[in-house]
């Protein structure tokens, strides 16, 4: 796996507190004999689980990813033997169970809401569009010029399909390679904007 981790194995967060040191050890053993590689696999699986829950439209993907990993770790510690040669498949199976439980719970809650008066809960406060746009402008300025030009050109045409085909020919790379190159720049921008908004929020609270 190529995705890197900023955290070291063993330094994971556990919001629910369900993951004991023993079950975490069992999890790392399952992922790889090498502790460092096991930690990297762990981070990769967690990040991808978060995305899968997001793509299923679930509102708390971080918690659900942690819940999935915790369940797998507990089962491993209890001695459940995973016969599958593909550890990812095992995580995916547990993630599907977790998603189905959440969907059932949401359906029950929706039915309860329809039976009773319900006071709307205001959505969480998020930075407004102007602040985000300012942050994005600043982050674009910090990119190397070739990356900035690429991401702006990729998003600037009214006829996206034709202009992207033109861009792919100009750069001499296949469309999927172009997509992924732009995606990597977008990820950088997303992270940069997120950090800027966090810094702004801290300055406001001081």
């Amino acid at each position: 796996m190529k995705e890197s981790s900023e955290r070291q194995p063993g330094a994971r967060r556990s919001r629910s507190g369900d993951l004991t040191p023993e079950s975490f050890e069992a999890l790392l053993d399952f992922l790889d004999e090498d502790r460092h590689l096991a930690g990297l696999h762990y981070e990769t699986i967690r990040r991808r689980l978060v995305r899968l829950f997001e793509w299923r439209g679930l509102g708390n993907p971080d918690d659900l990813a942690d819940e999935t990993i915790n369940r797998v770790a507990r089962r491993l510690q209890e001695g459940t033997e995973v016969r599958s040669a593909d550890p990812f498949g095992y995580f995916c199976g547990v993630a599907h169970l977790v998603a189905k439980e959440v969907a059932r719970r949401a359906a029950r809650e929706r039915a309860a809401l329809e039976r009773e008066d319900w006071t709307p809960v205001p959505p969480p406060e998020e930075p407004d569009g102007d602040e985000r746009l300012d942050g994005l402008r600043q982050c674009l300025q910090r990119l190397p010029p070739d990356q900035r030009d690429l991401v702006l050109r990729y998003h600037q045409a009214s006829d996206h399909i034709r202009s992207r085909q033109g861009l792919s020919q100009e750069l001499g790379i296949p469309m999927n390679a172009l997509r992924i190159r732009v995606h990597r720049v977008r990820r950088k921008l997303e992270e940069c904007v997120r950090l800027r908004l966090r810094v702004n929020a801290l300055q406001v609270h001081r």
């Binding site: 978060v50 829950f53 600037q156």
Partner: peptide, 26 residues
């Protein structure tokens, strides 16, 4: 689906911002 999670909303906001700034650049 995407607006259900903070990460999805953040990526949506980024896409909107790039669309605005991309048009400006054009």
């Amino acid at each position: 689906r995407l607006t259900a999670s903070p990460g999805g909303r953040s990526r949506l906001a980024l896409a909107r911002g790039l669309a605005v700034l991309g048009r400006d650049a054009r």
